[in-house]
Design a protein around this nucleic acid. Structure first.
Lengths: 143, 143
DNA sequence: GTTCCTGCAAAAGCTTTGCAGAAGA
DNA sequence: TCTTCTGCAAAGCTTTTGCAGGAAC
């Protein structure tokens, strides 16, 4: 469903998206870590190998990618924005305990929306919250 | 489905939630304006009749209500938190043009979640984005 | 050679915190 | 009376903006 990184980069180049090494690394990170990172998480991860990398550049890159619809910005809670290489048909589950966001398969396009006649739907999001299996286990063990 | 405001207030009182006039007005606003306002919108609306009302108090009230699960905090996008008297079985539609958030009926509880076995689901959210009928109309008229 | 990107510093928003005085139960 | 709320000021975070130098095409 998701193209290879190379195919993805070609698509971006066709959209006149300039591929600096900062942008390449950001894309590579998003591609390899489909864990819905925040801008800060991306910056922390890339900073090790690119000490000069600025957070402004991360924001600039992410905003540019969102604008050309190559990446989706989701805000599930906590006033923080998370970024996601676009993959179809999935929902998000955020663990209220460890903060991890999980994807799960769901055919959102089949989702009934007969109550929205007259609306133009551009984006569909399904976000659940709760506690993930690992945190449930830890909780039970500590009881 | 939603209890009357009076019933709602009794429930809160039972939860040891103190009903100052600032809190009463905030609750009344949330009850009468189920439009998912931001803290700022609530403050603006109430400020007219209560010039001394502070935003800190709005935040305090909203956070307290969220903690006792009388109100839900949703973040759909734009790094802003919106607040919602809890009503079951509805989804949200945010117009990307005018920013309005619409409710629509949807049985979220029946939503298939067989991919989430082992997860404890506490909250389910469905958020669509797009353009509302009124903005679509304005757009067509200006073409 | 243009155009656009990078990164610093500063600014802008929204939300939280500390604290003294005031109000609810 | 005791506990909790209010509101000011200040701080904390995340994100955006302005701008000069530098890199991509």
């Amino acid at each position: 469903m998701l193209p290879t990184l190379e195919e993805f980069l070609i698509q971006l180049r066709n959209k006149k998206f300039r591929l600096s090494k900062e942008r390449l690394n950001t894309l590579k990170y998003l591609y390899e870590n489909q864990c819905h990172p925040t801008a800060d998480q991306i910056h922390n991860a890339l900073h090790k190998d690119m000490p000069s990398l600025s957070k402004t550049t991360i924001y600039n890159t992410l905003n540019a990618l969102v604008k050309i619809k190559a990446v989706r910005a989701i805000s599930i809670q906590d006033n923080e924005i998370r970024y996601d290489i676009i993959v179809k048909n999935h929902g998000h589950f955020k663990c209220e305990c460890c903060g991890t966001i999980f994807n799960f398969e769901i055919s959102i396009d089949d989702f009934p929306s007969h109550r929205l006649e007259g609306f133009q739907i551009n984006d569909r999001n399904v976000c659940f919250k709760g506690i993930c299996p690992r945190c449930l286990l830890n909780k039970n063990n500590s009881d």
